[in-house]
């Protein structure tokens, strides 16, 4: 593609956009390391005290741990359930795809608040009373990441032509189960890892469902941050920045993997 020289209008527009988008981040970042910051453009003095305090805070570490294991369990459960299901649908029932597409777009289209209303109504009374427990949250998380997992697994299956691979394996005498485990799984693995990481970062940033369903009982990093916002500004910025750095690492890994995977497939 031949590109002409980029004009100054485009340059300055992009510069403005980047300033606009990065300013809140930068502000939080500076605030996390600022000792005195009242009436100057940049902080007057710097300190690492807030970062240190954050790591000394038992509640922060607890919340981080809770977030990590809840997200891990949910993503693992989703993998265990979705891998066979999407495989079966793609291979045996390709006609269901339209229906499935409608089904997995629902979590996108139905806002978290609405989902929380339904979940609370269903599970706060009667014979399954699991409101406020981790079970309801894991179930809700499963639905939140449903679109990402479905699309990721389905696309990987399609790019490696799973049906043809499977037929070839059967022709050579492998059982379905064996073909799935030894041929399909290793082939779709890179794509599946990408959607797993994406789901993980989505769940890590989840606040609405967590706060409404289990807010009083289980503290994830988002709920903890919400409670801290009104207490100490500096400490909260340190937490926000730590959270953001984590998300940044996950998304960088995601992008690297995505590029690698595309190369492998494109070969």
């Amino acid at each position: 593609m031949n590109q002409r020289k980029v004009g100054w209008t485009h340059r300055s527009l992009m510069l403005l956009l980047m300033i606009y988008l990065l300013l809140p981040l930068l502000g939080t970042f500076l605030y996390a390391f600022a000792k005195e910051w009242q009436t100057t453009v940049l902080p007057e003095s710097w300190t690492l005290e807030w970062i240190r305090e954050m790591f000394r805070d038992a509640r922060f570490l607890d919340a981080l741990w809770t977030s990590l294991y809840l997200c891990l369990i949910s993503v693992a459960l989703s993998l265990a359930v979705m891998l066979p299901a999407v495989f079966v649908i793609t291979v045996y029932f390709p006609k269901w795809e339209t229906f499935m597409k409608g089904l997995v777009v629902l979590p996108y289209a139905v806002p978290g608040v609405v989902a929380a209303v339904g979940l609370i109504r269903t599970y706060s009374s009667g014979f399954i009373d699991i409101t406020g427990t981790a079970y309801i949250l894991i179930g809700a998380y499963f639905i939140v990441i449903l679109p990402y997992m479905y699309q990721g697994i389905r696309n990987s299956l399609l790019t490696v032509s799973a049906v043809e691979l499977l037929n070839a394996a059967e022709l050579l005498g492998a059982s379905r189960m064996r073909a799935f485990v030894t041929i399909i799984l290793p082939n779709i693995w890179p794509g599946v890892i990408i959607s797993t990481l994406l789901s993980f970062s989505v769940l890590f940033g989840e606040f609405v469902l967590t706060n409404m369903l289990v807010g009083g009982h289980i503290q994830t990093i988002q709920v903890y941050l919400y409670q801290r916002v009104n207490e100490s500004g500096h400490l909260a910025s340190a937490i926000a920045i730590a959270y953001f750095v984590f998300i940044l690492i996950v998304s960088t890994v995601l992008m690297k993997l995505g590029k690698k995977f595309n190369k492998v497939v494109g070969r």
Binding site: L17, L21, L23, G27, Y226, V229, A240, F244, S251
Partner: peptide, 21 residues
């Protein structure tokens, strides 16, 4: 990539950043 990154910056942390600024 930068704009994608900032689109992750939503919800509670975003509100907080604006409160600081």
């Amino acid at each position: 990539m930068l704009s994608n990154m900032t689109s992750n910056f939503a919800g509670v942390p975003l509100a907080f950043a604006y409160i600081i600024l």
